[in-house]
Every structure is written in C-alpha cells, then in structure tokens.
C-alpha cells in the first residue's frame, strides 16, 4: 500500500513537471504570433525604435494607418489570397493523392523497376534545391511559360519527400491482407486504393497536408521569379512588395500583411489538426 501511495505521489509530481514543460513550450510557440499581431497595430517608427513590444499604445489608430498604407501601395490581398489559395490547395491535393498512389505502387506491388524508382526518389530528395531551382526558372523563362500558376502546381505531382513519407507510413501500417480481401470482394485495384487504402492513411495524409499547405502557402522565391504579372501574385509576393521600398519600409503594414497571410494557415491547420489531436483511436488493423 505504502509503495503504491509513493508511486501516486511521484506521478502527481511528474504530471506537474510535464505541465510546466508543456506550458513553457506553448508560450514559446505563441510568442511570435503575439508579437506579430501587436506589431500589426503599431506604427513603423515605433517598430523601428522597439521591434518587440507587449502592447501598442494606439492600436486602432495605427491599424487604420497601416491599412491606409495598403491603399497607397497597390496592395491587393484578395488577389493574392485567391491565387495562393488556388496554388496551395491544388498543390496539396495533387501532391497528397499522387504521392500516396506512388507510395502504394512501390509498397503493395512487385514490379520490375520499382527498386530503381525507390532509389530515384531517395536520390532526388538529397539534391540541394538551390541549383535545380536555378535550372527550373531558367527553363520556364526559356519556354515563355512565366505567369502561369500551373507551372507552380503541376510539379507537385512528383514530390519525392512525400512519397518517401507515405511509403514509410504504409510500411508500418498497411496490411496486405486487407487489400487481398478487397480483391476477393471483387473490387478493382484502383477502387481498393481509393476506398480502402486512402482512408487507412488518414493520419499520414493529415500531417502531410498541413506541411504541404504551409510550405506552399509560404513559398516566396519561386513565385516571385515566375509570377511577374500582378493579377497572378500570391499573398507572400503581395506582402513582400510592402517592404520593397529601399529607403522606407512600412514595418507596421508589413506585419499587418504577414498577419493576414498567416490567418488562413492557422484556420487550415486547426481544422486538420484534429487528426493529430485525436490520438490512438484512428489506427487501422495491422497484420
């Protein structure tokens, strides 16, 4: 009995320890958002004087001023939002679907060349992105395909990093007996994948969806080089133009722009995060 009591005390102490650590990290996670939102309600010169502040002395007045800057700066968040939305959503859906499909083809079937494909995928992942990036934008300019959103969307079908993740995930959680029983039920291979394998991959798809959406949404350099027509700008490009003036950066507006940029991401994330939060209950059967 005494022993159990001690154990109980220990676990209470441990729980407090867990909470303290978690709360510290939670504060660290929230701090930059807080600073960013506060800075969106501060003036440029206030920010130059003290980049970090816990509150703004005249939040509403400054917010209005920062909005006014947008008008003078040819700032069209709605254009950027729509383009970013088209790109990120398409990229995420294409990358998720085709990466899962490719991973499944490697994991579930025995075919000649699959080892080569697998090696190729690992190989491409390891190539530093910088110079392939140079090659890519030069190619797009050469074939006069700038200002086309497709050029940023379609390449997502071949996302080696995600194929690799999906493959690793399937390795741990796909049981071929499920696939086999589907076949016995007369389901076509394609249907088996869509209706049985994909749902099984929900946790993996949810996490990768978040990562892909976030990185596609925040992607700046490539869209900046390839989309030079204002009607094709993405949200980060629109925000980057706010700091474009060399002599005078409107920091308050930049932070306001960044806050606007990040809000849709937070909403997408919170929605998808249910799969991360829900815990162990989701797992399928495992052979």
């Amino acid at each position: 009995m005494a022993n159990e009591n001690k154990l109980h005390k220990e676990s209470v102490g441990f729980k407090i320890f867990e909470y303290v650590i978690c709360v510290i990290f939670a504060i660290l996670s929230l701090a930059p958002f807080y600073i960013m939102f506060v800075n969106a309600t501060r003036g440029t010169y206030e920010i130059q004087q003290h980049a970090i502040s816990l509150f703004s002395p005249h939040p509403f007045q400054n917010l209005a001023k920062n909005w006014a800057v947008f008008n003078g700066k040819d700032f069209h968040p709605e254009t950027g939002f729509v383009n970013s939305f088209i790109i990120s959503t398409s990229v995420t859906i294409l990358a998720l679907y085709f990466s899962s499909l490719t991973a499944y083809s490697i994991q579930a079937y025995e075919w000649k060349g699959k080892k080569i494909l697998n090696g190729l995928i690992m190989g491409i992942m390891m190539i530093p992105g910088t110079v392939t990036m140079i090659g890519f934008y030069q190619m797009v300019y050469k074939i006069h395909m700038t200002n086309r959103l497709e050029m940023l969307i379609i390449p997502a079908i071949a996302s080696p990093m995600m194929v690799y993740f999906m493959k690793q995930y399937l390795e741990g959680s796909l049981s071929l007996s499920i696939v086999e029983s589907a076949r016995i039920d007369g389901a076509s291979e394609f249907r088996t994948f869509n209706q049985i394998v994909l749902p099984l991959m929900k946790p993996a798809i949810a996490t990768q969806a978040i990562f892909t959406y976030v990185s596609s949404w925040n992607n700046l350099f490539m869209p900046l080089i390839l989309l030079t027509d204002k009607s094709k700008y993405t949200l980060p490009i629109v925000v980057s133009l706010l700091k474009g003036d060399i002599y005078k950066t409107e920091y308050g507006s930049v932070y306001l722009g960044l806050s606007i940029t990040v809000l849709p991401l937070i909403v997408v994330y919170i929605f998808l995060s249910k799969y991360i939060v829900e815990g162990v209950a989701l797992g399928g059967t495992k052979g």
């Binding site: 900046l224 080089i225 980057s240 133009l241 060399i246």
Partner: peptide, 8 residues
C-alpha cells in the same frame, strides 16, 4: 507594370 521587390 511589373514590380518585384529587391528584398528577397
């Protein structure tokens, strides 16, 4: 008009 910020 094409505007690309130099900052990035």
């Amino acid at each position: 008009v094409t505007i690309i910020a130099t900052t990035d």
